[in-house]
Simulated scan of single mutants.
Amino acid sequence: MPLARVSYWNLPRVVRNRIEDAIGIVTSASSVGEGMNNSVASLLQTSGGRYFVKALPSDHRWAWTQAREAEIAQYLRPIAPALYARVVDLGWDVLVFEALAGRQADYTPRSADLRHVVDLLTRIGEFPCPDITLRRAEQRLQAYADASNLHYFAGDALLHTDLNNANVIIGRDGARIVDWGWATRGASWLDAAYWVIWLIAAGHSPESAERWAAKVPAWRTAPASGITAFSAANAHLWADVGGTDPDAWTRRLVNAAGSWHGFRSSFEP
Rank of each mutant, 00 (worst) to 15 (best):
Q45P: 00
V40N: 01
L163A: 12
A257R: 00
E210F: 06
A137M: 15
A63L: 06
H116V: 06
L158G: 01
L11E: 02
A166V: 09
A157V: 07
A4Y: 11
D156G: 13
A202P: 00
G48H: 07
A233Q: 00
A201T: 07
A4M: 11
G174S: 11
D247S: 08
P269G: 09
Y51A: 04
D240G: 01
V26R: 07
L11K: 00
L158V: 06
P128Y: 03
N38S: 15
N149K: 07
A209R: 00
V88H: 00
R77C: 10
Y75R: 07
R136L: 09
A4I: 09
G125R: 10
L163K: 02
D156A: 11
T27H: 13
L95Y: 00
L190S: 01
D89E: 15
M1N: 10
V88D: 14
G203Q: 05
A147S: 12
S111I: 02
D173K: 07
G243M: 14
A166F: 12
E98C: 04
L95W: 00
I197R: 04
A73L: 03
F97G: 03
Q74L: 04
D131W: 05
S31I: 03
R211K: 13
P246L: 09
D131R: 13
L83T: 05
W180R: 00
L120C: 11
R172T: 07
N38W: 14
A224S: 08
R68D: 00
Q66T: 13
N37I: 02
Y144V: 03
D173S: 10
L43K: 15
H261A: 15
T184H: 01
V40D: 00
Y194F: 14
S208G: 11
A67E: 15
L83I: 11
H204Y: 04
G174E: 14
G49S: 12
L56P: 06
S265E: 13
W182Q: 13
S231E: 08
E138C: 05
W9K: 08
L76F: 14
P130V: 09
L159I: 09
